[in-house]
Simulated scan of single mutants.
Amino acid sequence: MTGSDVQLLGAAAIRELAGRLGVAPTKQWGQNFVVDANTVRRIVRAGDVGAQDVVVEVGPGLGSLTLALLEQAHRVVAIEIDPRLAQALPETVAAMAPSRADDLEVVHGDALRVAELPGPAPTALVANLPYNVSVPVVLHLLATFSSIERVLVMVQLEVAERLAARPGSRTYGVPSVKAAWYGDVRLAGTVSRSIFWPVPNVDSGLVRIDRCEPPAVEVSRAEVFACVDAAFAQRRKTLRAALKGWAGSADAAEAALVEAGIDPRTRGEQLDVAQFAALAAARTRVTA
């Protein structure tokens, strides 16, 4: 059930609420609260959130985005590490969106340690993520909840560009490849720093991921990711040299590369996720 009686939080309401709770944004948890109602509605639209969705939100803070999600979603599960904010969020929703109060579940904890969530399986992850843990949170939740079909997160613009980067680009790296394992990744827009309180010293970007099947290979995700990590640990080197430790020797790395149809002189930034998966599989064949 979506709600028509939802009131969103503006800048004045957010500051008043923070003052009443004795809350000041902390750098420890990377807190920057969104104070613009148009922006949170834009995030919900960009995530295609609808009445069928069970949305996971990480770091709901004072509830700006939570309320916008409750306008459209079937249910919202909000994971909040700050105990004061976790306790206050249900009260805020009861006051600002009384018809939707029962459709919010607050989980007090660290999103990086969450292994299960209450209620129906989540279908989407939509969040204004703390800058300092944004990539690990996205990758952890995609790995943990296979039911998540869509991701729409607001992160530091530089991180957004890295996540959405394509092979061969300057910003392409480990986050780009690992995110692509789970789905199609794209930059869905940019966001001015002025819509936050406190105002950060960087702009933000919106990243959308639409889940698709990972490359079909007879090796695990962990094995593929180990290859990716090794390739980018020494990104200036050719893969023959960079993968020496991963494969056991430079000759073994070359054999795996040739088996996968990849020129050993190639660098990691030139391979897409399917090629990394093929390379990890090739290593198991040449060392069998």
Rank of each mutant, 00 (worst) to 15 (best):
G245M: 10
D229C: 11
K244I: 15
V217Q: 03
K244W: 14
D229S: 11
S220T: 08
K237A: 03
P215T: 00
V219N: 01
A242M: 07
D229K: 14
A250K: 13
V219L: 01
A230S: 06
C212V: 14
A247D: 02
K244S: 15
A222K: 06
S220L: 04
K244L: 15
K237H: 05
C227Y: 00
S249E: 08
V228P: 05
A222M: 07
A247I: 01
E223V: 04
V228G: 05
A242S: 08
L239Q: 02
R235M: 10
Q234E: 15
A233S: 11
D251I: 14
K237D: 09
E254R: 15
A231Y: 05
S220P: 03
S249L: 06
D210Q: 13
A241V: 15
A247P: 04
A250D: 09
I209S: 07
S249K: 02
K237E: 12
K237C: 06
E213H: 12
A241D: 15
A253I: 08
F232Y: 08
A233W: 10
A247E: 02
Q234S: 14
F225V: 01
F232M: 05
P214M: 02
G245E: 10
A242V: 02
G248V: 08
A231S: 06
A226Y: 02
A222Q: 11
R221G: 10
L239M: 07
D210S: 13
S220Y: 02
T238I: 12
E213I: 12
V217K: 02
L243I: 11
S220E: 07
A242I: 04
A247F: 02
G245K: 09
V224I: 01
P215G: 04
E213V: 14
A233P: 09
V224H: 00
D229N: 13
